[in-house]
Write a protein that binds this DNA or RNA. Structure first.
Lengths: 339, 339
DNA sequence: ATGAAAGCGCTAACAG
DNA sequence: CTGTTAGCGCTTTCAT
């Protein structure tokens, strides 16, 4: 069932049928209605490929997601999807699974399909990959932290500052032996957090201990194992700052298994402020990141570039996070009065 | 950069170039290598639309997801994605947001793009919608519970049995005043759970109280509000069974706010066994659903149908859930010895 | 083993 | 307002 069948049945040319599809206003109302009726009766739907062959606009953007089971990434994705949907565009979500090769393969797919643009969330790809995409004329936007991003459009958060805020809060509550338990992914984000942690420790005139910097898989399990190791140190920490709430959940579980009270024996601060951080026992102090907003801003940036021929200058949107103070980080002496 | 450019540079016809793309074995090794080299140098990628115009296979399947922020659905989606990826096929994840109209719009999109098949997760669409898709020659698979699914391929769980198991466990622990707090979505699944709940209560010779059947939004907030209402009853329940772990988390929060101990004052059982159910305090007894497996089975079913011309007979795969017994459901007198 | 040519279904000049 | 026609980039007979 193609455009010619419709044309024949309606006794018009294919051009006219094509017109009711694309510029209905240029067709006489009577002919148009007749053609529309016939289309409906025949359950005709235009062939997407033939269409794309002429248009070269696909109404699709690619969205690279590090891991679809991590709600942190999905919150961002939702922001992107919201904007895309509003633009009557479909966001092709690609589950990259923190695997550079898988991401590259997806990228090839997307480029072949000539998507109108691509958004990367905490991608592990590099400058070279991104440039290649842009050279094909496909605009991109990066969300998260990237090492070498001067020439790209990026939406990010000041992860360094964020980490400093968290550590300073612990310092302010009187803690001195503070460990940082961080995930292998997302890599660059976490490197920036490490920097912030180190800076805050140094600024307080304390000495850095490599033992207190523990790198683990960014999962609940990773948090569990990491915290366990930390507490088995000869000089265990009195507070643990983690690079994600999931790590914090795992860490809390480990502490409970060791019969340590939070925050009386060990304080904890997480990162991201996922919904559950408010429901664990005790409620988790954490760094709040505007995840949904990041997705929205990123998508807007991308659509601006897709729609305007002369895309705006590359540049970064840098958002500031906020510390969400709850019970898990409370000073042991003041805890009674604080909560 | 198209196939003709390559042909010219290589001094061959477009047909030969096309052949190295599709049937390389029918091209003389020397010519083939030359052409391949030129393609690489020119960074040529075949136009996807032109290709699809001839093939009519897109290497894409649609995946309808009720809500991408709900990890229950994403676990299933991950199962689908795993299989799709293995089949070198892309799964287009559509974030339906429990909105029938949004889902229909996505469906139109997918059909226009001639995806090779579509998988629906707990869809709110009906028999008519599904039939329309199949009439277009696009095979579909349903995951979850559906009202009128005899003519479709579906992967489901015995939700009725599952609910009975949970309620029976509570009955076995001595509870008599058991409420069921269930979500508005996914609708059919939860209706089946309601049935199971009622059946188990009746089988125990107890009388059903409408007050104990509370329907709320399927979110943590919904669970909080629902549990609060239940506990404000003149005769509040001594145990609450919820249709999802998220509802259970909200309910637990409400109980804590009322200074009620779990399970000493009120027992709780959730549904789904999401990762966090093992990390809340107390650990949550819940019904374990093989989410990932459901996705995998659904995808396999779909690809079988896509690949075989004569698709297998419609039929259902019905999986049995298991009760995961943890602390939140313990009998108050026996709790000491049980955990 | 390779080439010429006829489409695949649709859009957009151009002409009337 | 409508029809004619030339592509869009690729695949695939059918010859050679």
């Amino acid at each position: 069932m193609n455009i010619r069948h419709i044309a024949e049945r309606a006794g018009v040319s294919v051009a006219t049928v094509s017109r009711v599809l694309n510029h209905p206003e240029h067709v006489a109302p009577k002919t148009r209605e007749k053609i529309e009726r016939i289309m409906r009766e025949a359950e005709y739907t235009p062939n997407w490929f033939a269409r794309g062959l002429n248009f070269n606009k696909t109404g699709t953007i690619g969205l690279m997601i590090p891991h679809i089971l991590n709600s942190v990434h999905m919150e961002i994705a939702k922001g992107v999807d919201d904007v895309a949907h509003q633009k009557e565009c479909i966001a092709l979500m690609c589950n990259v699974e923190n695997d550079r090769e898988k991401e590259r393969r997806y990228l090839q797919w997307l480029m072949k399909r000539r998507v109108d643009g691509i958004i990367f969330i905490s991608s592990s790809l590099g400058k070279r990959d991104f440039e290649q995409v842009q050279e094909q004329g496909i605009p991109i936007v990066l969300i998260g932290a990237y090492r070498d991003n001067d020439n790209f459009h990026v939406v990010s958060v000041d992860y360094r500052q964020a980490a400093m805020k968290a550590v300073n809060h612990l310092l302010g509550n009187g803690y001195r032996k503070i460990a940082f338990l961080y995930g292998e992914t997302p890599q660059v984000e976490n490197e920036q957090k490490v920097e912030g942690y180190k800076q805050a420790i140094r600024d307080a005139g304390l000495s850095l201990s490599e033992d207190f910097l523990k790198r683990v898989e960014n999962t609940i399990e990773g948090g569990y194992l990491g915290a366990k190791k930390l507490m088995e140190l000869a000089q265990p920490p009195k507070a643990i700052f983690t690079s994600s709430d999931y790590l914090a959940f795992g860490a809390m579980d480990a502490l409970k298994d060791k019969n340590l009270k939070i925050p009386e024996d060990v304080a904890i601060i997480g990162f991201d402020n996922v919904r559950m951080s408010n429901l664990v026992e005790p409620k988790l102090t954490t760094v709040e990141i505007p995840l949904h907003k990041m997705g929205v801003y990123g998508a807007r940036l991308l659509f601006d570039r897709i729609e305007e021929e002369n895309s705006p200058y590359p540049g970064a949107i840098l958002l500031q996070p906020k510390l969400k103070i709850r019970k898990s980080s409370g000073h042991k002496e003041r805890i009674g009065e604080m909560f």
